[in-house]
């Protein structure tokens, strides 16, 4: 079965699913948003700590989500940490796919895009420093 799994998900997805680096609450987060994927009911909450100078000091996520969505959220958190808020807002799905290194079928694309859109909501909803 594991052999089949290799064909289904990339090593990056499998690794990030097993050991996400950014899963968990972010104490003191000041930019937070949560949304669901209506297709499957998956739920992702992104939490960011944005410093007064607009730099993202910490990012994390929690959620009920599949391997692809979890890996995507983890990669999003990775990519935005240390960036300016403007840079983070410019993050695209392609950037995430680039890291995931996996062929994603159309039916699962929402699993990748959900964390990216939640990131956008978090950045929009938070007060500008």
């Amino acid at each position: 079965m594991s052999a089949a799994a290799h064909g289904v998900y990339s090593d990056v997805i499998r690794e990030r699913w097993r050991k996400p680096r950014h899963r968990g609450e972010v104490p003191g987060a000041n930019a937070v948003a949560e949304d669901v994927n209506p297709l499957c009911g998956d739920r992702v909450r992104m939490m960011l700590t944005v410093a007064p100078d607009g730099r993202i000091e910490a990012a994390g996520f929690i959620g009920d989500s599949c391997a692809i969505c979890t890996a995507s959220a983890d990669v999003v958190a990775d990519l935005v940490t240390g960036r300016s808020r403007a840079d983070a807002a410019a993050l695209e799905v392609a950037d995430v796919l680039n890291v995931l290194q996996s062929e994603i079928r159309p039916t699962r694309m929402r699993c990748v895009t959900l964390p990216v859109s939640v990131l956008g909501q978090a950045l929009n909803g938070s007060k500008r420093a």
Partner: peptide, 8 residues
């Protein structure tokens, strides 16, 4: 996750 079960 159920989606991963279905995909596998």
């Amino acid at each position: 996750h159920p989606h991963d079960v279905a995909a596998l």
